[in-house]
Computed example of a mutant assay.
Amino acid sequence: MNILLTRELKTCFEQLSIDKTCRVVVLTGAGKAFTSGIDVKYLSTVALGELSQIDDSARKALHLRRMIKRTQSCLRAVDQCEKPAIAAIHGHCLGAGVDLSVCCDIRYSSCDTTFSIKEVDMSLAADVGTLQILAKSITNHSLFRELVFTARTFDTNEAQQIGLLSRVFDTREAVLHAAINLASAIARKSPVATLGSKIQLHYARDHSSDDNFNFVSTWNSGMLLLKIL
C-alpha cells in the first residue's frame, strides 16, 4: 500500500458512497494476498526524503502529522462510506492491511490467511484504524493487546477470538463467493434502512446510550415517513 493506492481508495469510496446504482461494496485483493501492508520503500525514500529537507524539528513534526492525517482520511473513506463494505480477505493481511479491513463493516477470510498488527515492529503505534476502531469492539482485550504489543503473526482462529472476523472459509474462492452472496442479500434490503443502520452503528461507537437513543429517535422520525418503507 503506497500513497497512490490510498488516494485512489479514497476517491473510489467517496464516489461509491454517492453512487445510486451501488448498494454494497466488496473489497478484496487481486493478487496472492489481501494486502501485505504499507509500502516500506515509500516510507524509507519518499516520506523520509521529504522530512530530510526540513531543518526545524517542529516543522518536521507538523509535516509528518499532515502526512499521517492524509493517510487516515484515505482509509477512513472506507469506514465513512454510506454503503456497507465487506472485506473478503485471503493470503496475508498485515499492518495497514488490518487497518484497512477494520474500516470495513464485515470481514470474511479464507482459513489460510495470516494477520499481523505490524506497526510496533516499525517503531509505530497503529494509527489508521486498528487501535482507533477495532479496539472499541473487540471481544478479547487481553489477546488483542498481546497481538498489538508483540506484532506477532496470528491465524484466523485468533482473529475470530478478538472479533476481527465473522466467518472463515476453506478457500479464497469460497470467501469471495460468500461475500458476494452476502452483498446481494444486503442489496435487496431498503437502502434507507441500511444507511440508517450504518450511521447509527457508527454514532453508537462514539456516544453514550442516552445520546444513541436520542439520535435514532430523531433519525427514524424522519425516515419512517418515507414511502419506500
Results as ranks from 00 to 15, higher is better:
residue 114 T to W: 08
residue 175 V to M: 11
residue 153 T to N: 09
residue 204 A to V: 10
residue 210 D to A: 15
residue 106 I to T: 07
residue 160 Q to K: 09
residue 210 D to I: 15
residue 130 T to P: 14
residue 108 Y to N: 02
residue 110 S to I: 03
residue 65 R to S: 15
residue 152 R to F: 08
residue 155 D to I: 13
residue 146 E to M: 12
residue 107 R to Y: 05
residue 87 A to Y: 03
residue 128 V to K: 00
residue 146 E to H: 04
residue 104 C to T: 06
residue 162 I to Y: 09
residue 209 S to Y: 14
residue 172 R to F: 10
residue 207 H to V: 12
residue 166 S to D: 06
residue 144 F to T: 10
residue 70 R to P: 01
residue 195 L to D: 06
residue 76 R to T: 09
residue 118 K to C: 15
residue 100 L to M: 12
residue 211 D to I: 00
residue 71 T to P: 04
residue 97 G to T: 08
residue 147 L to R: 01
residue 125 A to D: 13
residue 153 T to C: 14
residue 112 D to N: 08
residue 175 V to S: 04
residue 121 D to R: 05
residue 75 L to C: 06
residue 137 S to G: 10
residue 211 D to A: 15
residue 144 F to H: 08
residue 154 F to H: 03
residue 91 G to E: 09
residue 69 K to W: 07
residue 63 H to M: 06
residue 155 D to T: 13
residue 206 D to W: 08
residue 97 G to P: 12
residue 135 A to E: 04
residue 125 A to L: 14
residue 65 R to L: 15
residue 94 L to F: 05
residue 142 S to I: 06
residue 103 C to N: 03
residue 103 C to L: 07
residue 203 Y to T: 11
residue 206 D to V: 15
residue 80 Q to I: 08
residue 140 N to A: 12
residue 201 L to T: 08
residue 189 K to M: 14
residue 80 Q to F: 06
residue 118 K to E: 13
residue 150 T to C: 05
residue 124 L to S: 03
residue 129 G to V: 13
residue 197 S to P: 01
residue 85 A to T: 11
residue 148 V to E: 09
residue 141 H to T: 12
residue 194 T to D: 12
residue 110 S to K: 01
residue 168 V to N: 10
residue 164 L to R: 07
residue 133 I to W: 04
residue 153 T to S: 13
residue 205 R to F: 06
residue 197 S to W: 03
residue 195 L to N: 09
residue 144 F to I: 10
residue 70 R to Q: 15
residue 134 L to T: 06
residue 92 H to E: 10
residue 128 V to T: 01
residue 135 A to T: 03
residue 200 Q to S: 12
residue 127 D to L: 02
residue 141 H to N: 11
residue 73 S to M: 08
residue 153 T to H: 10
residue 147 L to A: 01
residue 180 I to S: 11
residue 117 I to K: 00
residue 186 I to N: 05
residue 121 D to H: 10
residue 163 G to R: 01
residue 77 A to E: 10
residue 190 S to D: 04
residue 211 D to T: 13
residue 64 L to Q: 12
residue 89 I to M: 05
residue 144 F to P: 00
residue 132 Q to R: 11
residue 184 S to T: 00
residue 203 Y to K: 14
residue 75 L to E: 11
residue 133 I to L: 07
residue 147 L to V: 04
